[in-house]
Design a binder for these strands. Structure first.
Lengths: 348, 348
DNA sequence: CTGAAAGCGCTTACAG
DNA sequence: CTGAAAGCGCTTACAG
């Protein structure tokens, strides 16, 4: 393959045809693995392709055929554990299917006006190919809604209240179950109730995590405190933790993600309350560093990378109209008990 | 703007021309802001564009003009703090210039064979547009080397031994200075020497971080221990920390990144050594959670997001042949002293 | 200031 | 099994 001889004007299908002594049409057949080409002809064409260092232009392909083997991911964030892992999963799967992956960050996770988001969706759509929208936050939800009819799109969403219809290709993790499990774990340790610091919700509705937490409390007949609104990062957890630290009645706190939990633990420590001696804290996600914190963090592991792979798989099946199409929730969340949770103070 | 009326076959420049009663050539002039168009004509065309919901096809544009307003980022990783932040910076800057951003993850950060990496570079090049290669690791370095002559590319590299020539558009942070500062900080606290846990290097040469550390030791006349080889994540730090924990002579450890530091601290804690009471630990990068750890982490803040923005800016100036072209190192690293560093045990 | 032609590198029918 | 035509939606000269 002639890599070094790269020049401005790239070698085209016609150049190959000339070199091989065939029409460019035949070259097209060869590069598309069309069955009806005489083996000897194919050989000659392949040799010419190799010698000339021909690479088929994906933009010409896209223009002529309308297909594009590309996916663009629309997301409000690329660095938080969940988002980053989903992106990683999508990229992995896309690469395996030789799809190009583009990425567009949605502005103003909170106060974005609809027009701005719609414009970004349009820009992404212009690229051609399919769309995957991470709709864990208001900007993402708006983006998903703004996707024009007829454009191939898969949404990565919070657990929907009820499974969407077959025409709605969505994927999600079972956040409700995860929160339920984590809450039950804390309750089983003897805590009277469990407080909750929430990540920002994608909608005004009660999030799946919040509702799983509430259900566990309800089933146990435990008091149901109001959820505390947090942010995505540790600073929000720190602010919430400062408030909890003054209240001796608080002995167990579930957090909407591990970063929040980190902030809560830090705040409790600053106020002289020990974890888990005085207060138990559990997170959500199992970020890479959570096992190495002191105390190491009890959390619920969610397979975001797998979720990303599923999202791509679903989109792929839509784009290539093969295989089955339908929503498929992914792996079951797994409770990981570590040092940050234990019995409440004075527990028998 | 007609967003809802999206159909399979999109409206083209000719449709607009017909609607406006002009030739499609004139429409082309309008959408390219060409000066010589009569204002009244322009108005009519603009109205037609708006009414029909016309969007110029970027793939047709790319095919016809050869330009593509796209950048693809080649990287071995998308989730570690530094990588993710650079990507974020690139995306920000690209979006501001309405460039599309693609991403390709390089396989096998360590043992990748050259052919595989070269193929990935080719695939990225096929997309058209420019390339930004994050060359912090062997796969990235190989990718940068495999970029064919004549393709617009910017490398994000470790501090080069000497500034590259003007034809090598590279950006970097001053890692050498950063490591030097951090080491001097620990030395100034009274430690006899400072040990170092390294991140994997991009080459066999001594990395900039390692060399800054060594220089500070040398200048202070301190013993120069061998650097310990770590990985990118906390697990590598944990392994290194376990080894250090047994050696009472070790009182200060500098780590190649914050995750490594987290692992080291955890290991020391497991072995009953307190931080910073018995051992001081400093990290590198100032990841978002580092301020909220207990103890909070002394580290050196590096502006990776700014670095990403610079990388894009440089590529942009190469692609559009405007403005100045040349390597520009970015902001100065900033030492952030927190709780994890202090005087050695028994220090006056 | 505006239009008619040729072409970017491919594919999709249509012929043979 | 293989070729000649038309076209994807735009741009870049060339005309006027």
């Amino acid at each position: 393959m002639n890599v070094t001889g790269h020049t401005r004007r790239s070698v085209s299908i016609r150049d190959v045809a000339t070199a091989a002594g065939v029409s460019y049409q035949t070259v097209s057949r060869v590069i598309n693995a069309h069955p009806s080409v005489k083996p000897s002809t194919r050989e000659r064409v392949l040799a010419a392709i190799d010698e000339l260092g021909f690479r088929r232009s994906s933009t010409a392909l896209a223009l002529a055929s309308g297909r594009s083997r590309a996916v663009t991911v629309l997301t409000a964030n690329t660095t938080h554990h969940g988002y980053a892992s989903i992106l990683q999963g999508i990229e992995e799967a896309a690469r395996a299917s030789s799809y190009a992956v583009g990425i567009g960050v949605l502005e103003s996770p909170d106060g974005a006006d609809g027009a701005e988001v719609a414009a970004q969706v349009q820009r992404a759509a212009d690229t051609g190919g399919g769309l995957i929208v991470i709709a864990y936050d208001p900007a993402g939800v708006r983006a998903l809604e703004a996707v024009p009819e007829g454009l191939p799109v898969v949404g990565v969403v919070e657990t929907p209240a009820r499974p969407p219809g077959g025409d709605r290709p969505w994927v999600w993790t079972d956040d409700r179950e995860a929160a339920y499990e984590a809450t039950r774990h804390l309750l089983s340790l003897g805590h009277e109730t469990v407080h909750y610091v929430a990540i920002p919700s994608s909608t005004r509705r009660t999030s799946a995590r919040t509702s799983g937490w509430q259900q566990a409390l309800k089933e146990a007949g435990a008091p149901q405190p109001r959820p505390v609104q947090g942010s995505w990062g540790p600073a929000g957890g720190h602010a919430a933790g400062l408030r909890f630290a003054g209240d001796r009645a608080v002995t167990a706190i579930l957090c909407g993600n591990d970063d929040l939990a980190l902030g809560v633990i830090r705040a409790l420590h600053e106020k002289g309350r020990s974890v888990p001696g005085d207060v138990s804290v559990a997170g959500f996600d199992d970020a890479p560093h959570s096992a190495f914190l002191t105390p190491s963090l009890t959390t619920v592991r969610l397979d975001f990378t797998g979720l990303g792979r599923s999202a791509f798989g679903l989109l792929h099946s839509v784009l290539e109209e093969s295989a089955q199409v339908g929503p498929h929730p992914v792996s079951v969340p797994e409770l990981v008990v570590r040092e940050s949770s234990g019995p409440p103070p004075g527990h028998a």
